[in-house]
Nucleic acid binder design. Structure first.
Lengths: 336, 336
DNA sequence: TACATTGATAATAACGTTTTCATAGCGAGC
DNA sequence: GCTCGCTATGAAAACGTTATTATCAATGTA
């Protein structure tokens, strides 16, 4: 009476059985048009909202989806989350978010816990092992962003193309010896990018100078500064923008000015890449789009009546030429 | 048999009734120690997990909490979310996150929708009206961050103190005519800070020059540049760090260098404030701590058997002297 | 000895849906 | 005209918990 309005109240108001009310919402085509109208208007009049818990109890579905990110304070992820979220909202899914703090073991455990609360998951840049990932995949629909594991649907970025564009850019600017500051070897995309760098530098007949692996943070970039200075190169490619910004910052401490003394290119195009001074030359990866696409896939998987889901998608990257890369100082023929 | 293990399976295994199993988890003190042990071990052996939906159905509680933020890509919020989340996790609450896209009307609607899925809410920098806020408060426990409404529990920052510190700092550096670049008038904390600026500048016998209101974004800060230049001041206080960074960036376009030609101070101490070059003088507000505290309050409200929740908390800010503020060029007595 | 009192457990009734399964009505085909 | 099949609906049985009430033994009290 006093409590929230139930399906029974609507049934009474529309003079039908509760079953018919339920059908009206779940399988509208199964109920006569005029009855349907009657039920709908009664429901609207009473402001009826189905009780999720009761639905869940019987269907076994929660109606929620989950997002897992390694570190929300890393500027890469909020955009991804936003992309997922806005698409999820369109589709009517509330979103459970979890931040694993970059801890692979914790990540796996949190996914297990979260798994019971959601009908599907989007895992961003998952740190856990392939095996763990595959075992979670057994449990419920899951799509990956920025990580590939055979047999698991994923949205990735065309990093090879992005790196290729940067290499071409540096070659066009006349650089020959090029340093690469890698991210952590444990990171999937770090390994992918490292591979692409080696491949494309070689293909362009340029010399790769490995500077080493560092944490994918501002401080990680900073700590690469000394080795960069010792590498005797005119240009450095850095695993990501945050590190590139850190590197540039520390380089300034050494009195080395970018781009005058050294060309630096980043990766990701985080918001602050454009805001830095000088603005960072980088490769844009469409993060929000990736999130939205992943959510669309997930939805397809979850509502899959039919057979296979679509193949993994690889999103195009875009090279962004800004202020931290310049033509190598003119020497020889041109300079004479 | 095949499906997930239910309370009934545990009851059978422990040779007690389902009711006793339930009690073992809900009110352990109500069941005999030896029985309890038997139930617990049976539950562990079978890897029993209570079905949330069934629990929800009868208790009317979801066990989830919700977070609402205006814009996740604003670097202020991820830290807050992280603070809430990590505390929530300790307390055993999964977290539903929603990003309102800075839209007050949407915000209110989303809170309504989200409200049905959670037992309590943390609203960060809520944009909606006091009335809407109060009406949502009727529905379920709710705590605010960075917004005050009489009668609603909140975690805020001691902005007056933060502003006072900045004013003192500028005075100590010898500045007299000081510009203030305000945030949007519709924002609660913008109004609060504006008020504090006026008060403390006056108290310090300094001259306030209002530069105008701008969007609280990098571009917002940029668009303030012309007016700042026309204000004929030696120092500018800016509503927040993102704007301050934008302002400095645009100033550079005008050939005005910070801090040599102009002192700029921000607010918030976002990550990039320290990373910028020169690093931004600002006021740190403990965002992660605020999130955690808000979550603790919320938990107290939700589990409140007793009477009133604790009073709203105001967190201390910390002045951070970095590179964008310098002593005003020496003139007069000292310079002769 | 009889009778409250307490403590531990069991039985059972919700909670609000969805989903068989059954049934009534009704037009079509033979 | 009788059955067949199809559509629209209702009745009732789940789903897995928690909360309420009842039962029963043990203990304390008069």
């Amino acid at each position: 009476m006093s409590g929230p309005v139930t399906i029974r109240d609507v049934a009474r108001a529309a003079d039908v059985s509760p079953a018919t009310v339920s059908r009206t919402f779940v399988r509208p085509e199964k109920v006569d048009a005029v009855t349907r109208e009657r039920v709908l208007s009664a429901a609207a009049r009473l402001d009826y909202r189905p009780n999720r818990a009761a639905q869940s109890l019987i269907t076994g579905l929660t109606g929620n989806i989950g997002i897992v990110v390694p570190d929300l304070t890393n500027p890469f992820f909020p955009s991804v989350v936003r992309g997922i979220q806005s698409r999820a909202e369109e589709l009517g899914y509330p979103v459970l978010l979890v931040d694993t703090g970059e801890d692979a073991a914790r990540e796996s455990e949190l996914v297990t816990r979260l798994g019971r609360q959601v009908d599907g998951l989007v895992l961003c840049a998952a740190r856990m092992s392939d095996e763990d990932l595959l075992s979670h995949r057994q449990q419920r629909p899951l799509v990956l962003i920025n990580r590939e594991v055979p047999g698991v649907p994923a949205v990735t970025f065309d990093n090879a193309a992005g790196i290729a564009q940067e290499v071409m850019h540096l070659k066009a600017l006349g650089h020959v010896r090029i340093g690469y500051v890698a991210g952590p070897g444990t990171s999937y995309s770090s390994r992918v990018r490292q591979g692409a760098v080696t491949t494309h530098l070689a293909a362009a007949a340029l010399t790769e100078v490995a500077v080493g692996s560092f944490a994918p943070s501002f401080d990680g970039g900073r700590s690469a500064a000394e080795k960069v200075l010792l590498a005797n190169v005119t240009a450095v490619m850095v695993y990501n923008d945050v590190m590139a910004l850190g590197l540039i910052n520390q380089l300034a401490q050494y009195g080395v000015s970018v781009p005058n003394d050294l060309t630096v290119v980043g990766y990701d195009d985080i918001e602050f890449a454009a805001m830095a001074n000088p603005a960072l030359t980088t490769v844009r990866v469409p993060r929000e789009e990736a999130g939205a696409l992943a959510m669309s896939y997930l939805n397809a998987l979850m509502t899959a009546t039919g057979p296979a889901p679509e193949p993994p998608a690889q999103l195009k990257t875009e090279f962004i030429f800004r202020g931290t890369s310049v033509r190598v100082p003119l020497t020889g023929a041109l300079a004479e």
